[in-house]
Design a protein around this nucleic acid. Sequence first.
DNA 1: CTATTATTAGAGTATATACTCTAGTGAGTC
DNA 2: GACTCACTAGAGTATATACTCTAATAATAG
Lengths: 229, 229
Amino acid sequence: MKTRDKILLSSLELFNERGERNVTTNHIAAHLAISPGNLYYHFRNKSDIIYEIFLEYEKLVDFYLDIPENRPMTLDDLTFYLESVFDGLWSYRFFHRDLEYLLDSDQRLREDYRQFTERCLAAIRRIFEKLAEADIIHPQPEDLRSAMSLNVWLVITNWMAYLKTAHGCEGEGELTLTHLKQGIYQVLTMEIPYLTPDYRERVMALREKYRPDIPDANGRVALAANDGR
Amino acid sequence: MKTRDKILLSSLELFNERGERNVTTNHIAAHLAISPGNLYYHFRNKSDIIYEIFLEYEKLVDFYLDIPENRPMTLDDLTFYLESVFDGLWSYRFFHRDLEYLLDSDQRLREDYRQFTERCLAAIRRIFEKLAEADIIHPQPEDLRSAMSLNVWLVITNWMAYLKTAHGCEGEGELTLTHLKQGIYQVLTMEIPYLTPDYRERVMALREKYRPDIPDANGRVALAANDGR
DNA sequence: CTATTATTAGAGTATATACTCTAGTGAGTC
DNA sequence: GACTCACTAGAGTATATACTCTAATAATAG
């Protein structure tokens, strides 16, 4: 594997593990057992590394959120979108943690990320639209759909921060992809009132599969056996 | 004013303006025209300053979210809670920006914040409960109420980050308290399906007052005259 | 007035961080 | 064999950062 790619890979790994703020270019070089000079031969600076990683993240999510227009949407589609978005969030989880700082330090990234957000929101809106077309949810006025979509986005992008900050349990409470995906439960919660009678049961069952098994804010632990995952 | 208090005040101001990561203890001292030594006479380290600021934040929000149990809840109460929470968020806006890093660097803060979150969530749940008691919203099963409350919390705490990251417009697009409070529109969006017929119109009108006047993700600008604020 | 304590200035320090510079090495090309 | 060129090592640098130390000054109590 090319040194350049190794740098990107190691950086992502270290960023995800320790947080971008705690990972220096020297750390990255040391982790790869290459010299700092070598690293700076391949990248002008740390921002450049982060930017390239963002481009990968962007490509991944754009790929997942490509909504096929030639057929109606199914519940499996919805599941796929939700799972995929959380997969992406997990793989590049360092990114949202220091988002504001990162955007402040790199204008390119700021503008790209803005457009990325817009595309994601448009995709979510389109998903709602197609869910209505498929009679899975009741149709909504455009205003409401936009506001709902934004709420979905806010919940998705903040779910991980909630898990990491609200559940202290330092040593044991390691965050996993499974925990992260329990955010799907939260997203589906918002759709409940809009479900059509035909699909209500099925969506509720789907939602149940993602019910958090960590103590909720009441200190209660859900008993649901999270089978099949 | 005591030097100690001046340090806290200046720190908060600088943190909010530039972000905690971009503000050093030397900056704070320079801003107050005192020596670094003086600053370190009053505080053991930067974390201590942040911790004390958090305690103020906590006290403020706890004060706002004290739910009176001796009378039914009104719509004015709800408005007050929403406005207050966003006021608090605004006054200590640096805090949520670097939350994960801050909690990682200070165990006390981590534990205190965890409990703070729990109290906030409990308050939100209680508000939903009392809204149902007052026949403003339909009653919900406890499960749903908990999940809804968590979503409200996620939307509230992520709204500012959304504004700061999704709306690039560097120079002009200065973030203001008014913009921030448009998050109330998003929060009320989640309650729409649960409103009782009696209150539906009134809550929708309230919500309309907070309709964002910034371009939404479609590039459209809401026309609503945001009167009276 | 004296002794003590609280407060402050300001120079200084150890370490870290992002990044640079020079001197190569080794694989291919003519 | 001379030359090129992508790639790499590793020492080095300027700056920043969190924090310390000493000495001095103001405030206060007896």
